[in-house]
């Protein structure tokens, strides 16, 4: 049976409300924040949560917000930060001189060693992922 590409629902389902989804994301983030880098648990947990969200996102049963049919010329503004970030990341990666000219992930690594910061990063990642799934 075909499902419509863009579904809009008047009354959100119980599990789809922020009062349910936000605590769930917080719990998942607190667990993720306890898992150290390069551990098998962290790899499995990232692959598991991300895989589940991709499965939900590709499943047309989840209600989505309508997408714009075209973007205005104002969209080019987004190229400014994206290009700056991309050029810097590319340059730091290609030059590969370590802490002298570090990549973004090299700068973020020491911050992400703290469990609270790591949990916050998990929450940001999962929240944005959930937002993409709903789009």
């Amino acid at each position: 049976m075909d499902h419509p590409r863009e579904l809009t629902v008047e009354a959100p389902r119980a599990w789809d409300r922020p009062v349910v989804s936000v605590p769930v994301l917080i719990c998942l983030s607190l667990v993720g924040g306890q898992l150290p880098s390069f551990s098998a648990q962290a790899n499995l947990y990232t692959l598991g949560t991300g895989g589940a969200l991709i499965w939900i996102g590709l499943n047309n049963r989840v209600p989505r917000r309508p997408a714009p049919r075209r973007l205005g010329r104002g969209a080019v503004w987004w190229l400014l930060p994206a290009t700056l970030f991309g050029v810097l990341e590319g340059a730091t990666f290609v030059l590969a001189v370590g802490d002298e000219f570090p990549t973004f992930s090299r700068l973020a690594d020491p911050l992400l060693e703290d469990h609270l910061v790591r949990s916050a990063a998990w929450f940001a990642w999962l929240s944005a992922f959930w937002g993409l799934v709903r789009r």
């Binding site: 880098s37 390069f38 992400l112 992922f129």
Partner: peptide, 22 residues
Amino acid sequence: VPVGRIGLFGFWWWLGWHFLAR
């Protein structure tokens, strides 16, 4: 095939794995 959807999901998945698991 929802190429844009798969691509963006894949990119975001990789980003999380890169920062939070590696």
